[in-house]
């Protein structure tokens, strides 16, 4: 495993730890989109259906279990925890899941490497992950007040994807990795969606101002 890939996985893990810290220690999910979190559960469940069938490495299996477990527990906290659920910005988190899920599913049926259940689900998870952050970005845009934890959470999620792009470049040139258009292009789109957020995040950090996205 190369350093970019490890850095990507670690920023991904760190983003989840940060969000769980906000939820468990501060008993708040203010500014967090339940829609996006539910989409991540769907992403992980559909991508990791091969968990019980195919073994890659101990690291790989553990990370998959961690991502599945943490994403499900985050959704549980936001929906059912009696204190946390009251901090959820329900009225502004109105992005409809189906507008993302349906097109991604149709696209996965049409564009995939092999027309098998596992492969279509895997492809669907890549397409859905690419756009799953959209409800969260919409929520941030509508929020007047973005706390540091939420801003850092979204930044780490974007950083994770940027590291994966570097990882693919490294694997292609150094490890003679084959061309893989589906994950590469969806990963590129996923990273591009963060571009605007990155711009305002870095700007607010440089000017030591509170993060605010223009409406």
């Amino acid at each position: 495993m190369n350093a970019f890939r490890l850095a990507g996985d670690m920023t991904h893990l760190l983003s989840i730890i940060l969000l769980l810290h906000k939820i468990r220690a501060m008993k708040s999910c203010a500014g967090i989109s339940l829609r996006t979190q539910e989409l991540y559960v769907i992403v992980f469940v559909t991508r990791y259906v091969d968990l019980s069938m195919k073994y890659y490495s101990f690291y790989n299996s553990i990370m998959k279990i961690v991502f599945l477990g943490t994403s499900i527990s985050i959704v549980w906290y936001m929906r059912y925890h009696k204190v946390v659920k009251q901090t959820y910005n329900k009225d502004v988190d109105t992005f409809r899941h189906i507008f993302l899920i349906l097109p991604c599913f149709v696209l996965a049926l049409l564009i995939n490497r092999a027309f098998t259940v596992i492969e279509v689900l895997w492809t669907f998870s890549l397409y859905l992950e690419a756009v799953a952050i959209l409800p969260q970005l919409v929520l941030l845009q509508r929020s007047r007040n973005i706390d540091n934890l939420t801003g850092n959470y979204v930044f780490l999620l974007g950083a994770y994807r940027a590291f994966y792009l570097l990882n693919w470049i490294y694997r292609f040139f150094i490890e003679n990795h084959q061309v893989r258009w589906i994950p590469w292009l969806s990963g590129l789109l996923q990273t591009a969606i963060y571009a605007d957020f990155f711009y305002y995040y870095i700007k607010s950090w440089k000017n030591r101002e509170k993060l605010k996205l223009p409406a």
Binding site: Y56, K64, W122, H177
Partner: peptide, 10 residues
């Protein structure tokens, strides 16, 4: 192997 390479990612 080459056919499973991206699948070892998360």
């Amino acid at each position: 192997s080459a056919s499973t390479d991206v699948k070892d990612e998360l």
